[in-house]
């Protein structure tokens, strides 16, 4: 890729990454949540992989790591679901507007789900680029 793309995407990728994290963290207060946030995070990595090459992208997170993290996070999600809905039998709480740390259960579910989605998409991107 040429100089302009490389220089600008160095900044833009970071911005996209932080925007994804923001979307995940505010999932219980505003539209968004784990899936859109995870997709945005993965798109930051896709930009890196397209512009700087797949080697550079794998320095951030490798394929093997993504595999393992995704499996672990999926298991954690299962355990949380068992705990929340089958044992405690409680409904999810309502968040307070403009307060980040207001609904712990939804926040943790969102973070776990976001990590899972982004890992899955990163795996898909790697597989597709390699062919």
């Amino acid at each position: 890729m040429d100089l302009i793309t490389r220089t600008s995407s160095r900044i833009v990728a970071l911005v996209i990454l932080f925007f994804g994290i923001y979307i995940i963290l505010h999932g219980h207060l505003s539209p968004g949540g784990s899936f859109p946030g995870g997709v945005i995070i993965a798109s930051a990595l896709a930009l890196t992989a397209v512009v700087f090459g797949i080697k550079k992208a794998e320095m951030f997170i490798g394929e093997r790591t993504a595999h393992i993290v995704e499996g672990l996070v999926a298991l954690a999600l299962c355990i949380m679901v068992i705990f929340e809905f089958f044992i405690r039998k409680m409904l999810l709480p309502l968040g307070t507007q403009f307060q980040l740390f207001s609904a712990w259960e939804i926040l943790t579910l969102n973070i776990v789900g976001g990590v899972m989605v982004s890992m899955a998409l990163i795996l898909i991107i790697y597989l597709m680029i390699r062919g």
């Binding site: 595999h67 499996g71 672990l72 999926a74 298991l75 299962c78 679901v81 089958f86």
Partner: peptide, 18 residues
């Protein structure tokens, strides 16, 4: 009957790791 699905899902993800 909800537990059946849960057992299967946990087994699916675990088998991908181990």
């Amino acid at each position: 009957i909800g537990y059946i699905i849960l057992i299967l899902i946990v087994a699916t993800f675990l088998s991908l790791i181990v």
